[in-house]
Simulated scan of single mutants.
Amino acid sequence: MDVKEGIISILKDVTGLDDIGTDADQDLFADGILDSMATVEVLVSLQDKFDIQVPVSEFDRSQWSTVNKIADRVGELEA
């Protein structure tokens, strides 16, 4: 499973929506898919799945708002 597939799987689990990932540039916050509670769940799941640490103090919603942006951030944190 590649990074984007893993992210989409997490987003589907957290939100209960099946159509996530059809547009990897869809703004998950602006479209109401993620709220603050779902964001925390997604971050915890990302940390567990990809063995990364996401400091909450450094979390900037604009950098985590799409599947593509999340994949980029995960890639940076894995390095």
Rank of each mutant, 00 (worst) to 15 (best):
G32K: 07
A71L: 04
D35A: 09
L17H: 13
L11D: 05
E58Y: 06
V56Q: 03
A24L: 09
G16K: 15
L77G: 06
T15V: 13
D35Q: 02
D27T: 15
K69I: 14
V74Y: 07
A30S: 04
I33K: 08
L34R: 09
P55C: 03
V40M: 14
A30G: 04
S57I: 07
A79M: 02
I8A: 00
T66F: 08
D18C: 15
D27A: 11
D27S: 08
G75A: 10
G32L: 03
V40I: 11
W64S: 13
R73D: 13
D19C: 03
D60M: 09
I33S: 05
L43S: 11
D19L: 13
I7Q: 02
Q26E: 10
I7E: 00
A30L: 13
V14T: 10
A79D: 13
Q47A: 10
Q53E: 14
D13F: 10
I52E: 00
V3A: 04
V67H: 09
K4A: 15
V54F: 09
K4M: 07
W64D: 03
P55Q: 06
G21K: 06
A24E: 14
S9R: 14
V74K: 06
G6L: 00
G21Y: 04
K49L: 02
V44H: 02
K4I: 13
T22Q: 14
N68T: 05
D2N: 10
V40Y: 05
G21L: 06
V44R: 05
L46M: 07
F29I: 01
D31N: 11
V67D: 01
V40S: 08
T22F: 14
S65G: 04
I52K: 07
I33H: 07
D72M: 09
G16R: 08
L77W: 10
A71C: 03
A71E: 12
E58K: 15
I8Y: 05
I20Q: 06
A71M: 02
S36D: 05
D72A: 15
I70H: 08
K69R: 12
G6V: 08
S65F: 03
L46T: 01
V54I: 14
I52M: 03
I33T: 13
I52D: 00
V3W: 12
I70R: 00
T66C: 05
M37Y: 14
P55R: 10
L46W: 01
A24D: 06
D31E: 09
T39L: 15
G75R: 13
Q53S: 14
D35K: 05
K12E: 08
K69D: 01
G16S: 07
D48W: 03
D51F: 13
D27L: 11
V40L: 05
M1N: 03
Q53R: 10
G16L: 04
V3L: 10
L17G: 09
L43R: 09
F59I: 08
L17A: 09
R73N: 06
L11E: 10
V40G: 07
M1V: 08
G32Q: 01
G75N: 12
D2F: 11
A24P: 08
V56M: 15
V56W: 12
G6N: 00
D60N: 12
P55I: 05
A24W: 04
D2L: 07
Q26W: 01
D51I: 11
T15G: 11
L17E: 03
T22S: 06
I8R: 00
P55L: 03
E76W: 14
I7G: 06
V3D: 07
Q47E: 11
G16E: 15
T15E: 00
